[in-house]
Write a protein that binds this DNA or RNA. Sequence first.
DNA 1: GAGTCTTTATGAAATCTTTATGCCCAGCCT
DNA 2: AGGCTGGGCATAAAGATTTCATAAAGACTC
Lengths: 232, 232
Amino acid sequence: MTDDKTLILLIEDEPQMRRFLRVSLQSQGYRLIEAETGSDGLVQVASRQPAIILLDLGLPDIDGLEVTEKLREWTTTPIIVISAREQERDKVRALDAGADDYLTKPFGADELLARIRVSLRHRARQEAGQDTPVFQAGKLQVDFNKRQVLLDGEEIHLTPLEYRLLTTLIRHADKVVTHTHLLREVWGPRQANQVQYLRVYMAQLRQKLEDDPARPRFFINEPGIGYRFKSE
Amino acid sequence: MTDDKTLILLIEDEPQMRRFLRVSLQSQGYRLIEAETGSDGLVQVASRQPAIILLDLGLPDIDGLEVTEKLREWTTTPIIVISAREQERDKVRALDAGADDYLTKPFGADELLARIRVSLRHRARQEAGQDTPVFQAGKLQVDFNKRQVLLDGEEIHLTPLEYRLLTTLIRHADKVVTHTHLLREVWGPRQANQVQYLRVYMAQLRQKLEDDPARPRFFINEPGIGYRFKSE
DNA sequence: GAGTCTTTATGAAATCTTTATGCCCAGCCT
DNA sequence: AGGCTGGGCATAAAGATTTCATAAAGACTC
């Protein structure tokens, strides 16, 4: 950390839009890093850990929607989508994929800055109550920063959905989380009634993380309601 | 559980906009309450505790900006501003006053719904790390947020209907609740005269929660009328 | 082609509904 | 007084229905 200015990542291929944003943001004291492609963007999010991501939908390699989905597999960093697509359908898709805001080009710098401040507020509130980068329960350890799960010290590989389901449950540890809530958080609002997904993935998590999958210690079912992660 | 639908408060004076939103939101399964003035809105936020606030800026009494500021003095409930003012200056002011999003009229219902889902996601993440209201009576403890019942510190498993019956009784603690009222709240209006359901489930609750089920301390029958939960 | 996600199928488990039985108590009759 | 009767109740348990767990087959992706 050379300096403590708020770091913003811009994923955008048009040079003139980049120039415009560079000026606007730096004049407000933000530090800006840039990526011209989706895949470079994904790498930079992981390596630089920006406070906010500004994402153009029309990228040369990966579509912005996909970038959003990939990011949401492991991070909750605010994503503000910036796009020329003004169709309502595009907005809904992006927001449901996990974006936090959607601005249509052209837009004013002041509005963007205000929306950035909103996202920073959210992030601050979120971090306030999230003091454990590493979660532990019994012989199970989850490192949210490394996206790593250890059982008895040994690393267990989880697929993206398995990991998201696990972390969602852990965030609500010991609380019953309803089917719809889990599905909305992990699969998105469109899949909110695909209860069978949950059954399948719960079985997989138990298979991988329970001593005796048939007599679970962590992943408790509450019939007719949802599931609960039991931390003790 | 009178209703587990997400509660949304709409603060808006134009009747036709209210009608439009009422239809859109209710079709998605949200429960909507309405306020026509800013001052009424402020009261309702406090009394009904909605999950989200939809706020029109042009209200007859207080300006929406002021409403936002007043709310932000004590609550972080998401506020989505809905306004005809499309000036960038207005947006910036509202967002900086504490609003979480800003939609300019006219807007599509789908976009609003998507932005509501974004706000609900934020709220859920925020609430994940919070502590909860707990009801206590004797050695019985009910944690509404975890949906968990403890007796003498030990966890007692309740089925969905048992739990709803218990919480309904507790919500009216020490008051007699009539048969029909209980049946309506727990089983729905169609089963309002299936009194035998109550007998069966009362017996089960006593079995699980009373020291001596035959001589109940909590679950008191009021012959011919209904039941009463005795808190001491 | 390996890894992952979605879909389908099936038996098991949990829950809900219904039925059956006996209790207690009040009122009523002889 | 004693016994009969019926309403309201508690409880147990059988039947019906819903929900779950799991394996495994298809579909999709890189």
